[in-house]
Structures are given as C-alpha cells and as structure tokens.
Design a protein around this nucleic acid. Sequence first.
DNA 1: TCATCATTTTATCATAGGTCAATTTTTACT
DNA 2: AGTAAAAATTGACCTATGATAAAATGATGA
Lengths: 189, 189
Amino acid sequence: MIARKIFKGLDLSKEEFDLISSNFEQVSYRKGDIILKIGEEVPYQYYVEDGCLRTFFEDKKGKEHTLQFAVKDWWISDYTAFINSRVAIMNIECIQDVILHRMTYEQLESIYREVPKVESFFRRKLERAFASFQNRILSNLADSAQERYLSFLKTYPEVDRNVKNYHIASYLGITTETLSRIRKRLAGE
Amino acid sequence: MIARKIFKGLDLSKEEFDLISSNFEQVSYRKGDIILKIGEEVPYQYYVEDGCLRTFFEDKKGKEHTLQFAVKDWWISDYTAFINSRVAIMNIECIQDVILHRMTYEQLESIYREVPKVESFFRRKLERAFASFQNRILSNLADSAQERYLSFLKTYPEVDRNVKNYHIASYLGITTETLSRIRKRLAGE
DNA sequence: TCATCATTTTATCATAGGTCAATTTTTACT
DNA sequence: AGTAAAAATTGACCTATGATAAAATGATGA
C-alpha cells in the first residue's frame, strides 16, 4: 500500500493508512508528457513512485529554465499555485516514464482533518523546501558556475543520474556549452 | 499593544492578544549593530516595529551577499536555523536604528498551543516567503541585472527608500559599479 | 546493422558584468 | 559652515559566460 511508503516516517494505524490511501490516485505517464501547462489550473500535487520529472518555464527569448527536479520518493507540483488555487506559472514535464500518486488540495485538507500528523509532515517538507531554495539563492550569489555544478552533483547525485546535461544547465542558469566546458575542465584535473 | 499590530489580520479576543503580547519582548538597537552572528545560536525571531535590517554572509573572497531585508511590519531571523535549532549561517545587521519585538521558539510554540490561529498565520507567512524565494530563483535564471533591479524597485519600494545602493547590489548579486551603470542607463531613457 | 535523430563537444567571436583605480557627490559630525 | 568619512560614479581594462555554427558522439528504432 502506497501510503506506507509515502509516509514511512510517521507512526500511523492501519485505519489511518487506509484513509490516506483512499485519497491518492495512481497515474502513469510516458517520457516527454507534459502533465501541467502554464496557465492551467493546478488540481494536483504528485508523489513520485518512480521516474523523473521537472518543472520549467520559458523566458521571453524562448529559453527554458528548470526550477526543480523530482525523482523517486519526492513530491512535485507548481506548489505555490497549488496551495493558492492559482493557475500554473510553470510546466511539469516527465523526463522519463513515471508512476505517480496524486491528490487534490481538498483531499489534502481532508487528510489534515482526519490525521493531523500529516499536517506536520507536510509542514516539515515545506520548511525543507524553503531551506533548499534559500541555499540555491545563496549559491547563486556567491558561487561560480563550476562551484554550483559541483554542489549540484554532490547534493542531487540521484537527479544527475536521471537527467540530461542540458536539463542540468537549465537548472544552474548556464548554457549547455558552458556546462560542457566546465565538465572538460573538471575532467582534466 | 503590539500584538494587535503584529496580528492585525486575525480576529482574536483581548485575552488572546494579552497572552501573545506577554510572549514578546521589545528590544532596540543602533544603526550598525550586528544582532546575530554566523555560528551563534539563533534564539529569536524578530518583528520589526521600526527601522530596517538585513541578513547577509561573506563568501570566501570576503564579499558580502544580502539574502533578505526587513522593514516595518516584516519579520526577520535566520529562519531555517531558528526553527531547526541550528547555529546561524547568516548575520543580521541593523541598517538603521530599530525597534524590534522578539520571541523564542519555545514562546512561539506556546502561542501555537494557546492560540491555534497563530499557527495558520505563520504557515501563510512561510508560504509567502517560499513563493518569494521561488520568484527570486526564477528571476536569477531568466532576467538580466537591469531587469532584476527594476523588479526589485517595483516589488520593494519601501526597502529601496531605506537602504544604500551597495546593499541593493549585494542583494541582486552584482557590484556597486554595475548597479551604478544600470542606474545611469535607466536615467538616460 | 544502418540510418536518423538527439545530445554533447569544440571553435570562434561577442557581450554583460567584474576589477581596479581615481574622482565626484553625499552624508555625518564638530 | 567646514571637514572628514562614506557612498556613488566614471573610465580603462579583463574574464566568464553567451551566441552561433559546425563537428563528434551517443541513442533509438526500422
């Protein structure tokens, strides 16, 4: 049962796990599928059972920028749009075939009511996401492209294994050519 | 009573406001004071009644980078350290003379217990802070220094009025010379 | 296995922004 | 008001990264 996997840190009864599970819906998509488009409503947040996805947007010049990746056991959505019932400001793309478990905001709230521990679980998640955004800002301010690439590899080796270099470049805010040069430089050290 | 000002959005009884107020302690500092240093415990978060502050750190080369500003009616702390009982990874500096109201994490939790509405209040604050960090990352990825400066002015005119250009530069991730050139370019348009 | 398409690398040149040093302007203090 | 210190601007030069184009490598599917 997927809820046991998703909330494995929490000490919940069988009934609670059942109740939570009844609020998840399993869905699958193929590599390349866009499961959320800018401007659409954001009905779901997704738990990733398997596969890899990213959120990204296009700037005025048509260049893509990746905000976040999600691999096995992570969550993904246009989070701020999801919780505020706004339309998406980012796309979500499947980088590989994926198996997801999705829930609506109403379902999330109903779980909060029935199983309060879940609310703390998500609050801690939000706090960690906040901290990681903060680190990214600090790293943008203080570090060179090469340093940011190295700390990306160190922090998210699991992501590195699953995405193309041009995805990483668009996450780091550099071109694939620059990333290629950085990799060459690192190789020859 | 300061609690009425701080939680002005919330519909609370006089008793609740009193209880909350009893958990705040008013403190004042002079311009230039560093009220939190990297490596120290982070006992407090601060509500700004008046004045202006910033959180910043120094990189290996000794260059300062500003993560956040706080002006009247904002909160400031090394938030992730505060909630996780870690030591500070940023300094907090008073850019002007300030009047603050501080509380410890224990006091915060005790307020949560007594006045649950306050917990939602802070959760919404965290969500907004999260969204603003996200916007900053997106803007770093997609926008030029000039565009970032313009959107800073638009989003935080109140901050602009209270800080030096070199503070803004260290927030935008550029040098004061570059900011000066951008300002000149904008003036001649 | 070949052929095609996607991805990465390489080379050349262009540019935004950084560095350093000097100067001007603003602010704060006596 | 007058002076010293702080902040902002300017100029000359430098560097990391971007843009463009082409070549090399890797992956995929008939």
